[in-house]
Structures are given as structure tokens and as C-alpha cells.
Design a binder for these strands. Sequence first.
DNA 1: CGTTCCCTTGAGTAGTTTCAATACTTGTGG
DNA 2: CCACAAGTATTGAAACTACTCAAGGGAACG
Lengths: 257, 257
Amino acid sequence: MPSSVQHELSRYPRTGRFLMGRLRSALTEGEKQLVEDVIEGEHHLGGGELIAHRGAECGSSSILIDGFAIRVIARGGQDHIVSLQVPGDFIDLHGFALKRLDHDIYTLGPAKVGLVSHARLSEVIGHQPHLARLLWFSTLLDGAIHREWICKLEELSAAQRVAHVFCEICRRLEMVGIEAHHGFSLPLTQAQLASMCGTTAVHMSRALRRLRNETRASFRHGRLDLPYPAALAAFCEYDASYLYGPGELQVAGDYDD
Amino acid sequence: MPSSVQHELSRYPRTGRFLMGRLRSALTEGEKQLVEDVIEGEHHLGGGELIAHRGAECGSSSILIDGFAIRVIARGGQDHIVSLQVPGDFIDLHGFALKRLDHDIYTLGPAKVGLVSHARLSEVIGHQPHLARLLWFSTLLDGAIHREWICKLEELSAAQRVAHVFCEICRRLEMVGIEAHHGFSLPLTQAQLASMCGTTAVHMSRALRRLRNETRASFRHGRLDLPYPAALAAFCEYDASYLYGPGELQVAGDYDD
DNA sequence: CGTTCCCTTGAGTAGTTTCAATACTTGTGG
DNA sequence: CCACAAGTATTGAAACTACTCAAGGGAACG
């Protein structure tokens, strides 16, 4: 882990990864401290536990400190995974403006989350328009990722879709300072991967075999091995610009006021 | 058109439909006036004109006053439609927090848009936390719609997907006070519908035929006729709660402070 | 050591794509 | 007002991708 990441995490153990690799640099130390202090409690959760429930009125939001989470929409008896969150993500900040969520959120494997009450958040934001705008920004990131998923579902084959999922998670982990370039642990079943890719578990098994043969990427027992990340990216024509990382689409300058 | 809608539009000709059917009731008359006044100019556009361009630094956003718009992501030579906007939508308010867009936005048929500079918006929002939160809310609505589209692409057949698109547009039009219950004009080609549904133009033609046979919904020459809206909704098991209209998920009370 | 969940494989079927040919619509200019 | 061109929609047939059902193998947990 780079020392700059280590430094950030030791100073802000709960929120050090928030917006890391995105616009964290636009936050002042004071603002970072405010975000850190707004977290009221820390929860250690097991795998498959419910973090937020569709329809329930939510008075607080959670930030994912460690582990993964998924958003799930139940439709016609079946559960559909519509997105995945990585550490540093403010999982259900939506709830702050939406009041009720249109989906459920579950942990994926053991996870640590921090809690923020909306009352407290409201208070802080009222005096901090710059911070408010960055929180807003962070919720729009999810929208950008959703759009890419729509695109992916509209265009790619099943094998390319999983490849895309793997590329995205890899990139997002690296953005928040987690080494993932040549593989990482990902506590998902093939059935869940299938759900994310709009296909069946049986077909997912075949898609993964194809991926192993053609790109050497192998997903086994909740772990992805990625000896040739570039091959995987080429396989699904992955372009990460929608993640608003450093480069093309990001305009940090405008937030530095 | 109900007289309440007429009244709102005569008072706020450019922004009268903003959040209508959603949380417009949570806006005070003063806030509505602020929103109306923040619009600096009005543009009349033809069909297929570019409203906002991917990657360009945007200093202003647009609200759709009349007509339709689509969000398009170019990927691998092909254009993919990832969402559709109806009157009253603040089309690219995203740009305010994101600074650059990850997609292009085009008009669909003739449209009227209002322009807001970000500098002006920033100024107003700084003093209006309640209004800021409702603007934030309006951008999260797009996210909720994106999630439903992901779900739709993951689960439904081609015919059900178009049905879903039709149901959604119908519902959204009615929410903002446009009569659409038994049909409406929708200047789309079958190829564009196919792009929204992740299928081909040829297959879309067959899907539409099936829809005509099974639900009496007929889409011809840019117009949808809907003698039995309930049949269409049943066909794709449509549940509009993700639109955060009055009911289940909406909590207006919390914004009435 | 066995139950359970997860993954893999095969064979048949359904849904979707592709290619190619034909018609319908709309707009333009003669 | 008609002819023409361009774009749009429909149809058929063959190929392909993905789904379903069903059975067997493997890993993990008690």
C-alpha cells in the first residue's frame, strides 16, 4: 500500500477512502475531519447481512469502511443485483435526499460500515456548501456507473459482461488504495455474478471458462486471479473514464476554491 | 389538462413541471420563483440536436421545458441510449457537480430547453439548503430510473422491455401533467427503441408486433396508441414505485419544514 | 462423514441475431 | 401532382447465443 494511502487511513480511519482516487484532493483537511467526525458508530457485519431495506424510512446513511456491498432489487420473485459498492463508498447517501430507498442493500462477505444520522448530516451540510457539493458528486458517481452497466447490458455478450464487472471492481479498488492489479478476493457466487450480468448461473459457468481460456483470468472460490489484466480489459473493451478517476472527465480545479 | 397544472404553468412557464408529481409540493412559492428566475434563456431546438456533449466542460445546465431528450453513450462504434427525459426534467444538472458529462444528450423531435449557469446556481444554492436538497433529490431520481433499467435488461424479454419503456414514459408524462393515458406522440424510430432495449431493430419490429397482438398497444410513426394501458402494464409486470411518485416510497412530510 | 451449497457438463429448446429482400413513409424536386 | 430517393419498417430463413432441465462432481461446514 502506498504511504500516502497509509497516511490518509491513519488520520481518517473510517472515511480515509471516501472519494479517494476521485476528488478527495479537493477536500480540505478540515472538511475531511468533519466527514470523519460525522460518523457516529461503526458496525461489523457478517456476509449476506441487510444494511438498508427498501421502503423503510431511513434516518441515517452508511459508509462502507471495509468489504463489499450489493444493491438488490426484487422483481417478480427474483433478486437482481444492480450494483456493487467498494470500500470508501457512501453506500446509501441517496437515502438522505430520497428518504426511502427503492432497493435493498446487503453485505457481501464480512464488512465494516460507519453510520451517519441524517439530522447530523443536515446540520453540517447547511454550513458547508463546498462539502455538500462533493457529497452530491459522490452520489452522482453511482449514476454514472449505472449508465455504464446499462450500456454493458445493451451491448456485450455474457462473457464480456463478467469481464467488465471484474475490470470495474479492480479499477475501483485500486482507486481507493487497495492493491488489486493481479487479483483480489471477491466473495461472490457464480449465481450472483450471473444476476449482475443478466444471465443464468449455468451460462455464467460457461462464460467464466471462456474467460479462463481466452484471457487467463480465473475466478474460483471467491477469488479472482488476473495474471494479464490488460487481456481482460481488451476482451470487453473496457474504458474506465465513467468512473471519473484522474484524467479525461475529472476537473479537480473547479473544486479547489 | 387539470386546472392546477394550468395554474402552475401560467405562473412558472419554464419550470412549472419541475418535480411535478414528485416533491413539487414541498417547494415554497418563493423557491419555485427562485428556480424560475434562475433560468437565463430559452432555446428552441429541432429534432436530433445536441444539447450537451460528453467530455466538454459545462458551465451551465438545461431544463427540458417541452419535448423529449435522450442520453447516449458511444461505445465500440455504436450509440447506446441509456435514458430518456421528459418535460420538467433538469436534464444535465449532473454537470453541476460532475463538471463533465460521461455521455451526450440529444433532443428527440423539436424541444424547448431553459438554460441555467452554474455560477448563478451556486450562488442561489449557497443560501437555500432546502432547495439544494430538492435539486439533489431530482438528480437521484435519474439514478433510481437507471437501476430499474438495469433490472429490466437483466430480467425481461425484448417485448417486455419495450412495454416497460412505454409504461414508464406514459407514467412520467402523466406525473408532470401531460395527458398520456391512452397514447401519446413519441418521436422515436424502432432502431432507437431497440437501442434502449438492448436488442436489434429487426427484432424490435417483431416485439412490437407481439405487443400489438397481445396488449393492443400499437406504436406507429412516432405515436403510441394505448387503448388498454393496464394490459401493457400487466405484460411487463410494471411497478412504478421507483419513480418516487405519490405513494409508497415518497415521504413529502420530511421536506415540508 | 454426510449434508448442503456450489459448480460443471450435456442435450434439447427457446429467444435473438444476421443477412437479405421487399414494402411502406416522408420529404424533395420536377 | 407525380416520381424519386432516403430512411424506416416488415418478413423469411438460417445460424447462433443463451436458457432450461437434469444429472453428477466438488468444496465447505457441521
